Amino acid sequence: MRRILVFVMALSLSAMFSGCGSNTDTSEKITSNVQDTQKEDKKDTSQEKTEQVENKSEEKDEKNEQVVEDANKEDSGDHEAQDQILKIYYISDSEEIECAEIRTNLLQTTDIWNGLIGEGVLGGEYKMNSCNVDQEQKTIDLDVDSGTGSYIRSMGTTGEQQILTCITKSFLKTYGCERLKITENGQTLETGHTVLEGYMTADE
């Protein structure tokens, strides 16, 4: 009888230990699965954050590039080169003063002087020393060399007036200014018939 009881107790203890071992394995497996899932979730979240940072960085770079591009456009003298019109006044074969319009992308004072030479108002050997345009005051200060002064002085009254009119109107009309002063090597220009002191208008 005792042997039977001992045998039964031994079987019971064996079953209990076996159950505990099985429960322990199952618990360990569950814990391992939970940890793997948490690792995957963290990995996915980390990847999403990285992608968001990269997208924000790309957007910032694009904005910076656009700002630089816009700034370059603003600093550029051309501003995509809007057409402007040179108005060159010249003396026609019938001795009338007429206007030739020339389109240009970049307006420069030398273009007007060269236009006057091209239309025969001035000779190619005559030079413009400087030309300062004040858009606020609507004035232009033009300084010419002694060759231009001598050429104007060599003309008669009518010829002198025509040349001065062509020069004055060409600069004023092209730049939309109101008054122009002509000097000779920085000094007052004296023609054979008048002293050009102060500013002249396009109607004089």
Rank of each mutant, 00 (worst) to 15 (best):
L164Y: 04
E98R: 15
E101M: 11
N129I: 10
L172E: 08
E190M: 11
S27W: 08
L172G: 06
C99R: 09
H193I: 12
S170G: 07
I167R: 01
R103L: 08
E160S: 11
T148E: 05
I102S: 14
S32M: 04
G186A: 06
L5F: 11
I167N: 03
I88Q: 05
F17K: 07
L106M: 06
S22Y: 12
S92C: 08
E190I: 13
D36L: 10
E65D: 15
D111R: 12
V34Q: 14
K169W: 03
E28Q: 15
I152D: 09
K42I: 14
T158E: 12
G19K: 05
G124P: 07
Y126Q: 15
S18H: 08
E74W: 05
N55E: 13
E58F: 11
E197C: 09
E190Y: 08
L106A: 08
K173T: 07
I4K: 00
L189V: 15
K56L: 13
M1W: 00
D83N: 03
L122Q: 05
H193L: 11
S130Y: 05
S46Q: 14
K181P: 00
V6D: 14
E160P: 10
G192Q: 02
R3K: 13
M16N: 11
L5E: 13
K181C: 01
Q162I: 01
F171Q: 03
D145Q: 05
L86W: 02
K39W: 05
I85F: 03
S150M: 07
S130M: 04
N72G: 14
L107Y: 13
K39S: 02
G120K: 04
L13W: 12
A81I: 02
V144M: 03
Y151A: 15
Q135K: 14
R3V: 12
I97Q: 06
S76G: 11
L122P: 09
G149K: 08
K29G: 13
D203W: 01
G147T: 07
D83H: 01
K56T: 10
E74T: 10
T201W: 01
E119Q: 15
Y175G: 00
V67W: 05
I163N: 04
Q137K: 15
Y126A: 08
E119P: 09
V67K: 13
C131E: 04
E160Q: 13
K138F: 07
K60T: 00
V53Q: 14
N72H: 09
T50R: 13
L11I: 15
N72A: 10
N105F: 06
D36F: 01
L142T: 00
D93N: 14
G77L: 08
E51W: 03
T158R: 09
C177W: 04
N105I: 04
L106P: 00
S27Y: 11
C20F: 13
L189W: 12
K39N: 01
D44M: 15
K43Q: 15
V68E: 11
G147D: 08
F171S: 06
I112D: 02
E204T: 05
R179W: 03
K63F: 10
E80P: 01
E125P: 01
L196D: 00
K60Q: 01
S154R: 01
S57Q: 12
G147P: 02
Q187C: 08
I182Y: 01
T194D: 14
L122I: 05
I85E: 06
Q137T: 13
K49Y: 12
V53Y: 10
T148P: 07
G156P: 14
G124E: 09
